[in-house]
Each structure stands twice: as C-alpha cells, then as structure tokens.
C-alpha cells in the first residue's frame, strides 16, 4: 500500500498508478488517461519523470528515444486572453 501522491494536481497516488499499470499493462499515454496523472494544472511538469519511472518499472522496457508522453502546447499555464492574441502588460 503506497498512498504517496505522485501527481499533486490531480491527487493520484503511487498505488493508483502502479495498480493501473499492472492491471492494464498500459503505455505511458494510456496510464495518463486512465489515472489523470499529469493532466492537471501544471501539465505534468512535476510528475512526468515519476510517471515515466513507474511505466518503465511496470513494462520492464528501457526508455526509447521518443518522449514517453507527448509534449503538447501550451507548455506553460496560459490565459485565454493570451491565446486569443491579447498580451499581458
């Protein structure tokens, strides 16, 4: 039983991630979608390496050259005004 929180934004525990990885034998992307780890406010900037590590452990695969989780813009928290073309002053 490991109730250590991995994804702070979505409050996903190490146990949640380990169990999901074990049950579904999933890819990093599937693990993210099933648990919501890395899908909170920070965009996975805190937990990305942790999620990668759990997947590596669960699948036993060495990391490949492609990033396990795709990086999507915006890579920083961004206001709708900025996305709409209005600049912050």
């Amino acid at each position: 039983m490991d109730h250590t929180i991995i994804c702070r934004c979505e409050e996903v525990t190490l146990e949640d991630i380990n169990n999901t990885a074990e049950k579904y034998g999933c890819s990093a992307r599937e693990l993210k979608l099933r648990t919501r780890a890395g899908m909170g406010y920070c965009g996975g900037r805190t937990c990305r390496p942790a999620v990668d590590a759990v997947v590596q452990e669960a699948t036993g695969e060495e990391p490949g050259n492609n990033l396990p989780l795709k990086v999507q813009p915006p890579v920083r928290p961004t206001s709708l005004a900025t996305l709409g073309g209005q600049h912050q002053s």
Binding site: T4, I6, P73
Partner: peptide, 26 residues
C-alpha cells in the same frame, strides 16, 4: 508564442536549462 505576444525569428536557440525530478515520499 509568449505571454507578451508572438515573436518572429529566423533562428532560435533553446537554452531552457533543466528541471528537477521529483522524489515522492509520503
């Protein structure tokens, strides 16, 4: 694309450094 608008450039140098890995504990 920035929080201060869009900047056009011919060349780009990304020198964004490093981030810290977490060591999650209870």
């Amino acid at each position: 694309h920035t929080n201060q608008g869009v900047i056009d450039t011919e060349n780009l140098l990304v020198a964004s450094g490093a981030a810290e890995s977490p060591a999650p504990l209870p």
